[in-house]
Design a protein around this nucleic acid. Structure first.
Lengths: 202, 202, 202, 202
DNA sequence: GATGAATGAGTCTTCATTCAT
DNA sequence: TATGAATGAAGACTCATTCAT
């Protein structure tokens, strides 16, 4: 299984601030997403409110990541689960992730920017990395993936995926274009990891 | 020649500051690489000295990128040029880039961090992307690469490469381990882009 | 009315800062009126407080000018309005402006210094100039002022007035001395602009 | 006599720096005329040269004023001396001062800006003021000027003159237009100070 | 004389956080 | 809860001046 759920309900104000923060990060980038900017975007009169609801910037960021993961999971989970077999799931994951840009561009951009800057204790990035590694390992055991260094490949492919998604998010392309990008990338990754032809069969 | 070139060989202090800046960026990341930190690292008494030698932060950054590119080019250029054919060159580029970490870890980390943050409009990032695209296009024409969206693949593979390199730079592994990582990644990329077996030959 | 006006009555601290700024400008001149000096004068612990209340130096300056204009208008308005006829009003304006020094020396000096340095595009400077020109034009039409270039004369007389006022403000003279200065200057200006004796009457 | 000579020969470098300083002040204003800007304008590689030749900013400013006075004196002196009688000399002074803008706009603008900001021990401003006062006093004794407070009038008229000149310098008008402005202002000042008709005779 | 590197104080501004109300 | 004022450190950058060479 390539997805994992993790949700808890935010208080009203917290949720409002988190939403604003995500939008601000998506708009001006993580580096310029100050409390003042977020407060202004959220319609709050002062930054004090943010400090009141969150222990610090890290706390807010963590909450943002959690919120984005919830949205992401809701969109991608079913699509990935619908696929059967390691190869099909890999393909489904990549395509779903690219398609996600069409539905939640701000969330996608924000998450990538947060992770890129190393902020947020990053259950997100490490989690996904571990997930990919595990998926590769079991797929190799099943003979559908060729033998390779699962960690290195996981790093390369997830980062490449993020980059493509990030680029796409920046230009807000048509859904059909997004679908094409997803298929391109999925094909790339499937070929990169495929077992040599005479072996295995997913 | 009556006028000595000013930018060709850096003025001593300039070079010292650039070196310090690169090391600081590699250590604490681009976002936290302030003038004070750099000045302290360079043994300067005040940030004014940096402003004296550089027109501004952008100028310093540009100088850093230029310096890193010089180092990078000197290391990678010969290795890539020694390879013949599109596939071998792709492999050589990837392996050389990963091997570079063993020689100049700080430079590698700093460059990736600078580029990641969009600072320095640099020939570095756009240049490499264009290089990859062009390499893929001509390789496709020669029949050694399968048909794919060159831009998307270029983005995915260069970013994946950066991520692997960046991760490696963080842990400073043995040269042999680096060589292995390079081969792993190169194999991944070669398979991902290879033309289907019965076609072409280059 | 559901919304209290924000700029109508200043917020306490804002007013305090404006007052301090005016006094500092009057004391050390516009050029040396830095945020630190103003903060110190206002008993604030840091310049950050000023930036908190004002969008920038321009904003603070504008607020200063507005405040000074309020004081000025309250003092001079009735005195000028009480006079009848173009000549009498000119005389009243000059005398009131000089007398103002006795009541609000800091405000007067500060305003002149701000205007002199071209800061604050202010209705103050251009407004008064336009006012003088218009007053001269209508007075000429009425035949009480001789024909002259209204703009040039307006510039010369307002600047001369400012200089006398500024000089007076520097030495804080007795009210009776101020009154004498005012009458001297008014007489000078009335004679300078008077229509030749056998013409007009108004 | 309305003019006074004061010259001494500058060393070559000093003169070069002074010239540059005057031009810079005329262009960007006194407040922004830093040593760096002046050095750049003078083609000097560093500000050190300026500090070497001048004891400080005040010293440089004083030298600028002296230089400007030399130029001014050379232009205005003969014109003023050619006039006979107190009234004619006043008129000549005003007209010559305005005409000066056409010949040496930078010097005029610079001097006014320097004086305005209270920099330079100001033999210039005080000297001229004293000169005007003295001229008025002797003219009053001769019966050609009415009785008035010579100091107040001197302040008002010199400042008004500066303002008109400064305004003119900013727009660089035609010589004929300048001549007209000069006559306008001279007429204004002659009338302002004239003895009542049945008295005196210049 | 002349250079250019170095200094240290100063400019305004933004930031995350705290706290009394 | 919520407000908004207050803080103090840090941000990049400019300045006049000094000094070894």
């Amino acid at each position: 299984m390539l997805m994992r759920a993790r949700t808890f309900t935010e208080s009203g104000r917290r949720a409002q601030i988190v939403t604003a923060a995500i939008e601000v990060i998506a708009e001006v980038g993580f580096a310029k997403a100050s409390f003042s900017r977020i407060a202004k975007h959220a319609g709050l009169s002062s930054t004090g409110m943010i400090s009141y609801h969150f222990a610090g910037k890290d706390d807010l960021l963590t909450a943002c990541v959690a919120q984005i993961e919830k949205v992401t999971e809701a969109f991608m989970g079913p699509r990935v689960d619908a696929a059967e077999g390691h190869v099909a799931q890999l393909r489904a994951y990549v395509e779903a992730n690219v398609a996600l840009v069409g539905e939640h561009p701000a969330d996608v951009r924000a998450l990538i920017d947060i992770v890129k800057n190393g902020a947020a204790q990053s259950a997100s990035v490490n989690g996904r990395l571990a997930l990919f590694e595990e998926h590769f390992r079991t797929g190799q055991a099943a003979g559908v993936f060729r033998p390779f260094d699962t960690r290195t490949v996981a790093i390369a492919l997830t980062s490449g995926l993020d980059a493509v998604v990030s680029t796409a998010a920046a230009t807000a392309p048509e859904p059909t274009e997004l679908a094409r990008l997803g298929r391109e990338l999925a094909e790339l990754y499937v070929r990169a990891t495929a077992a040599d032809s005479q072996e295995g069969s997913a």
